[in-house]
Design a protein around this nucleic acid. Structure first.
Lengths: 142, 142
DNA sequence: TTCGGTGCAAATACTTTGCACCAGA
DNA sequence: TCTGGTGCAAAGTATTTGCACCGAA
């Protein structure tokens, strides 16, 4: 299981690390802030400090286990790094985060960067969206 | 000149506001942090407070005069809102910010959001890039 | 046993706010 | 004049760091 991930990252297998990893794996919301994780662990009577959560998440990020996103709203959110790259859509009404993949956009990005003499090392694409207002459309029938 | 922009935004035309607007217009770097603007104004012997710079920039953003970006690095940067929408490329080596426009990407974004039942209200696309390493290519001739 | 890991509190970085005074309309 | 604007200092918020103790290897 996940202990091996920690070992591979050169990190000792400790309780807080395991708990945080589990939280990211099992949580319904795939995108959690440090505070979110901390609060949930406290509720589960796990005796961790917020500082440790931050430290562990930063280490996980460095190890490639999690990815950090700076969506609007002041605080960073973290998600488990699983599978291939994807981008995000954040609903401005509900706060819901939706993941999506677009090969097309990836390619265009590379092309644009290349045109300027650069390679894309990393990128951040976030769509801030709102549910479509169907009433306004031609097919107004709700 | 820019006084009218302030008036239209319902803002009194005051010295700090004019100075900050001028700074954003005339600065070589089109993307400045609050701290950048503050420091430069102080150097020009303009007696402003950092809090005022933040306040004014926030008001300008609300008025649609400037746009705020949260690139990596902790602090927000502001740029004058001129012309149509564009995205950004940030060089990880030099910190240089390059603007670009891609109709294609805009369209694909709309399409993807629509597919999920959303409208794109706002979006943020930043490419973190590095100068192309020509030595590594097949055409290794530097 | 040993050294990395941890909790706590204090420190930091960026940004916002309270308040008395100042200045533009 | 009168209200919004401003500088300063203090308060916030998100995150990091110092330090003594603890626990995995």
């Amino acid at each position: 299981m996940e202990s091996s991930d920690l070992r591979n990252a050169g990190l000792k297998v400790t309780l807080p690390r395991i708990k945080i990893l589990e939280m990211l794996e099992n949580s319904d919301a795939r995108h959690l802030s440090a505070e979110d994780i901390y609060r949930r662990l406290i509720e589960m009577n796990e005796d961790v400090g917020l500082a440790t959560v931050y430290r562990v998440l930063t280490q996980f990020e460095a190890a490639g286990l999690v990815r950090r996103h700076n969506f609007e709203g002041g605080h960073a959110v973290f998600e488990l790094e699983r599978g291939p790259h994807h981008d995000h859509m954040v609903c401005l009404d509900s706060g819901k985060v939706i993941e999506f993949v677009s090969e097309e956009i990836e390619e265009i990005q590379q092309r644009i960067a290349a045109k300027h003499g650069y390679d894309v090392e990393e990128h951040s694409l976030v769509l801030y969206v709102r549910p479509k207002n169907r009433v306004a459309g031609k097919v107004g029938k709700g």
